[in-house]
Design a protein around this nucleic acid. Structure first.
Length: 594
RNA sequence: GGCCCGGUAGUUCAGUUGGUUAGAACGCUAGCCUGUCACGCUAGAGGCCGAGGGUUCGAGUCCCUUCCGGGUCACCA
């Protein structure tokens, strides 16, 4: 640093430090050259402060300062001064003070950056991702990553105080069936064999319970080779934990403690415990989603019984074939939305497999609706009564299989909540979803599959239906949902080997396959396994919510784009032929594959 | 794999029914400027219109293909 030692970060300097000689180091945010007077705003991770160079008091220094450009790295020594009354900048944290430079060094120069480093940037995200190290200089991202650090720190502290031990699990591990697509790593020593990167440390953390560690936590990278979304990256971080000698209530309680502390210590928001709870079926019935945003109403209403004999065949047929007719009252939207806008809502519904969207706009004297002419007067009245319809309201209907009706109306509800401005974005609604179905039917594979994972315990009272009626079995699984995002989930695990074997059979896993894939786990469970369960939080999503952003890339230092590529490093990329040989791998070009 | 949106100076964008030499703002360079803080004023440099092909006398503009990016559905226990 050419003889200078930093004394403060930029915004650590306060009015009370006026008169002191200080040294700050950082990047040039802006240079304002007024001729004989130059102002430089210097930026470090804490923020910015103004430095003054005056040609009258020090012509040589002033001349040197005129050479300075944006993003140059400077060390500045000077006396902290109070600005005169007129010169105070109320929009700046350090707006009442400035440094009168007496000495400075250009520690490093900078080329002209491809985009300007500022709080709100207009630069295209591709460009910013290519130069992520520059984008990360922006206060917005600096704050997010500092927040992420705080969250991780609070997690470690909190769980440590509650008797959890941080234990690392392998990254090079074994591929297991079900779940997401694995990232595979070829073995050099074992030709033709592969490690898998963990989708989560599930099996290992359960084995740590067998080993007697009692309470485990790890902040750990997980990998899933599936397509990306604005809240999904192929490598992401979990706050992963597991506990022995517990039932659902114990797990929920300890994690409520964590989350409420998190909100208190990061945002100063009090989230009262215990958290609200909804069962899966209630969440679906009322919100059409297993991760409902409960910050606003527009709840779904079942009108199947009213329309089971309807003259409108679409409704009648849906009910007759075992589905349902469900509706939302978009209050006030009838007078706000044009025909075109209502049709656009229909397109939204179709995205989620609904065949169409029926609607009624309630008016002062009657209805505007393409379906009303098929329906009886009292039928319409019953529907209006049940939905509490008033003039100006828009009633939207989906008639289909339950799952489709839930899905379409659930998403429509979110769309409407946003469009009608019903969502209070300053609010945080935290809740648990419980009693998930244990299994779901996989249409492609034509078999039942574990909804959470295959070590999740069924609810005791439903075990008897495991073979008879798999879809009916509820599980001891739970998700934590905040503002419509699934931020975490977990379950109590199967303890009995006999039950585990039944579970494998139901999902179509032969004894041999089970032994081959997790023989080591099944063997371990024979040597005295404590009852246990746990959960995992998505650290990225938690950070996203607390940071108030809706894109996961804003809280990851070096994220990947939708094609799972890193625009900065150009990963993934080809490798040397020699590397492939060592790994016993031949690549096949796309053309010869077809 | 499907659907939708986008790609024009360094950046953000405009560019008419296809018509001469593709514009603006910011940034950049130079000069002037002692209280700026998105400083101001003056002048200047800066373009393979993502790539390839086609239609046309003529393409940034129309057509086809392709590449790159974003969103979304399938997918993600």
């Amino acid at each position: 640093m050419k003889g200078l030692k930093r004394t403060h970060r930029c915004t650590e300097l306060k009015v009370s430090d006026v008169g002191r000689e200080v040294v700050v180091m950082g990047w040039v945010q802006r240079r304002r050259d007024l001729g004989k007077l130059i102002f430089v705003t210097l930026r470090d991770r804490s923020g910015i402060i103004q430095v003054v160079f005056n040609s009258e008091t020090d012509p040589e220094l002033h001349a040197k300062a005129s050479q300075v450009r944006s993003e140059y790295v400077l060390a500045i020594k000077g006396v902290l001064a109070r600005r005169s009354e007129e010169a105070i900048n109320p929009n700046m944290e350090t707006g009442e003070i400035e440094i009168i430079a007496s000495e400075f060094r250009i520690l490093n120069k900078s080329e002209i950056p491809p985009f300007h480093i500022e709080e709100i940037t207009e630069a295209n995200e591709v460009l910013r991702l290519k130069h992520r190290y520059l984008d990360l200089r922006r206060p917005h991202l600096q704050r997010n990553l500092m927040l992420r650090h705080r969250i991780a720190k609070i997690a470690r502290d909190y769980y440590d105080e509650n008797g959890f031990l941080e234990i690392e699990t392998p990254v090079l591990t074994k591929s297991t069936p079900e779940g997401a697509r694995d990232y595979l790593v070829p073995s050099r020593i074992h030709p033709g064999k592969f490690y898998a990167l963990p989708q989560s440390p599930q099996i290992f953390k359960q084995l740590l319970m067998v080993a007697g560690f009692d309470r485990y936590i790890q902040i750990v990278k997980c990998f899933r080779d599936e397509d990306l979304r604005s809240d999904r990256q192929p490598e992401f971080t979990q706050i992963d934990l597991e506990m022995s000698f517990v039932d659902i209530e114990d797990v929920l309680a300890v994690n409520e403690g964590f989350v409420s502390r998190l909100f208190r210590e990061t945002l100063g928001i009090d989230i009262p415990t215990p958290f609200k709870r909804l069962t899966y079926s209630e969440a679906m019935e009322r919100f059409g989603s297993d991760k409902p945003d409960t910050r606003f109403g527009l709840e779904l209403v079942d009108i199947s019984d009213i329309v089971s004999e309807s003259g409108f065949r679409v409704f009648k047929d849906a009910v007759e074939s075992g589905g349902s007719v469900r509706a939302i009252n978009a209050e006030g939207a009838g007078s706000k939305f044009s025909r075109k806008e209502i049709d656009a809502l229909g397109e939204v519904a179709k995205t989620y497999k609904a065949k169409g969207l029926a609607w009624m706009a309630v008016e002062q004297d009657g209805l505007r609706s393409p379906i009303a002419k098929f329906m009886a007067e009292d039928e319409i009245q019953s529907i209006k009564d049940r939905l509490g319809a008033k003039p100006g309201d828009l009633l939207l209907f989906v008639a289909d299989k339950d799952q489709v009706a839930f899905d379409a109306l659930g998403h429509l509800r979110l769309e409407l909540g946003e469009r009608l401005g019903l969502i209070d974005h300053s609010r945080f609604d935290v809740l648990w979803i419980t009693e998930f179905p244990l299994l779901e039917y996989d249409q492609e594979e034509k078999r039942w599959a574990a909804r959470h994972h295959m070590f999740t315990a069924p609810m005791d009272e439903d075990i008897e239906y495991l073979e008879k009626d798999p879809g009916r079995v509820r599980s001891k699984a739970y998700d934590m949902v905040i503002n419509g995002y699934e931020v975490g989930g977990g379950s109590i695990r199967i303890l009995s080997q006999e039950l585990q074997a039944r579970m494998f059979r139901v999902i179509g896993l032969t004894d041999e396959q089970a032994r081959d894939r997790f023989g080591f786990m099944l063997e371990a469970f024979r040597y005295g396994t404590p009852p246990h369960g746990g959960m995992a939080f998505g650290l990225d999503r938690l950070t996203m919510l607390l940071a108030g952003t809706d894109n996961i890339r804003d809280v990851i230092a070096f994220p990947k784009v939708q094609t799972a590529a890193c625009l900065m490093s150009s990963a993934p990329d080809t490798v040397e032929e020699k590397q492939l040989e060592e790994l016993h791998i031949k690549t096949v070009s796309k053309e010869s594959e077809e």
